[in-house]
Nucleic acid binder design. Sequence first.
DNA 1: CTGAAAGCGCTTACAG
DNA 2: CTGAAAGCGCTTACAG
Lengths: 336, 336
Amino acid sequence: MAKSARLSEVAKLAGVSPGLVSRLINDDPTLKIREETRERVTSAIEMLQYTPHASARALRSAQTGLLGFALYHVTDPIYAQMVESAETAAAAAGYSLMLLNAAELAAHPDTFRRLTQGRRVDGLLIQGGYSDDLSSLQGAKSIPTVLFNADALDGFRTVRLDDAGAATLATRHLIELGHRNIAFVGAEGSSSERRFQGYLSAMAEAGLAPHPVIAGGWDAGPAREVTESYCLSRGSATGLVVVSTTSALGVHAGVIASGRRVPQDVSIVSIHDTWFAPHLSPALTVAAMPLGDLGRVAVELLLEQMRSPTEGEVIFREPETRMVLRASSAPPPQGA
Amino acid sequence: MAKSARLSEVAKLAGVSPGLVSRLINDDPTLKIREETRERVTSAIEMLQYTPHASARALRSAQTGLLGFALYHVTDPIYAQMVESAETAAAAAGYSLMLLNAAELAAHPDTFRRLTQGRRVDGLLIQGGYSDDLSSLQGAKSIPTVLFNADALDGFRTVRLDDAGAATLATRHLIELGHRNIAFVGAEGSSSERRFQGYLSAMAEAGLAPHPVIAGGWDAGPAREVTESYCLSRGSATGLVVVSTTSALGVHAGVIASGRRVPQDVSIVSIHDTWFAPHLSPALTVAAMPLGDLGRVAVELLLEQMRSPTEGEVIFREPETRMVLRASSAPPPQGA
DNA sequence: CTGAAAGCGCTTACAG
DNA sequence: CTGAAAGCGCTTACAG
């Protein structure tokens, strides 16, 4: 564990000033240096295996190279996917991701302040649309911030997918198959609400009566129980549009557990595609939004925000939402 | 975006020296202070909404408050679970998690050096047992490091679960159900190898001939294809022990796609439990290791390591591995 | 019980 | 083309 070299030692070895070495390392565009000197410095760096000290650099330059990424549940595959693409995008831009617990941040204003006012990170990516207690973000503006998955919020840059559009597509798919009794299985938060609106508009445009929301939640377990009892209590829907894939897995299990068949008795269409959707039996039909890319786009928006702050909502639609038809959707049973 | 207060301003407002304020904030045990003075300082902090500057503190104290967590795939629910419990444990100890890409680190020694020699983090948690190219870790010892999921490695602290034991339990379960033709569906890396050894010993103790490994890999898609063709080509195993839940999902789909029934024709037992295992149809029988806790334990070991470095392997077994019996395992078909 | 001073390791105007 | 100097915002021996 030899102590690693400092900048000044490199300078001494190369016979130049520390400032010069610093400018060389940071590609200072105003730097004009003799080729011979440059080589002396470069080989001194090489020789001493010099690596800049991150904290010193952060203090002096007021940049940490860190982006905070605040999530409610990393274990939801939907978000795990975002984490991965965000990490890749951040790394490509020379940043690292600091993982944060959104619930914790929302609950403890001081934790939040230590992060933002303490300049722990250069920017903040925060998940919204979940339980929507974003009130404690008032102080967030001390640092560039992007809210993802959230409704537009005054004073903030937000980015989300076209939730309503995806739900409309999913609902239309069932309508086209001949279903007339279609229910929406929803959860808490604004992103579920937006999807519900999309369901409503598809029903309206087809002149069908909407069903009351089945409150399944974001997790598979509760969604399963609710669905099972819905089916056992003779719920009349032959088609279910489910708010997210994780819940859809539970809905899938719940329908089957109730003794009804998928898709012969009940069709299921989920919003969002995930790695496991094709491997359920029967496989899940989904409306696939560009979820993976959302992580990347959120990072890119944040980097932009760090250069020049703006407000306003971005709805990300590339590539556009498409239906992935698998085995969980089919025409309704005869006579339904 | 008002500039936030500095320590010196707090000191000035309270009429004391900056050093005093610093010692107060950091709970310096040698500090004896008059109650009245303490209150003056406290209210000055309150008044100015003072929050210490993280980078300055990091530079001066040579501690970043950051732990690096290097993974191959965050999207694997097995690891997402670890990330969550590691984040919680880190936060409880006052640390934050910096998410790192293990493949990237293994491939780029300079990225790795910038992290360790550049003192970007106070410690490093690295996933092993995956593809096992840990050669580039030679330089890792410039910083406290814990390898998780890896075989014991000279000069390193490692922690893992009792992989062999879990595989033995899973295999025995099938043997007790009456299966005699049992195959192991495996993947690359040492953690799969350890599980395979556990399978072998259970087969040996029952006097059964082991089958050749079915190379399914860590992902559901490939595992599914391999399993489907295994079944279609009349593979004789009536029981499958699968290396991990993600692969098991694929195996489950593959068996069903081949036209065989789970569990009437083929029983499936997976190593590791996950949130989706109970919701497959039929639900997955598993050997559940304390995976969630592994994240916490790895963090705790790392914190220990930061206090006083040691080497050696820790095998974490609390709570001990237990079989969770669900619907995917049953006695073999008659005459098998 | 409290203060003055040095210094962590860099970066960045400012000179020349 | 290169150097000397100040300073980012703290913490920590050392005095008294």
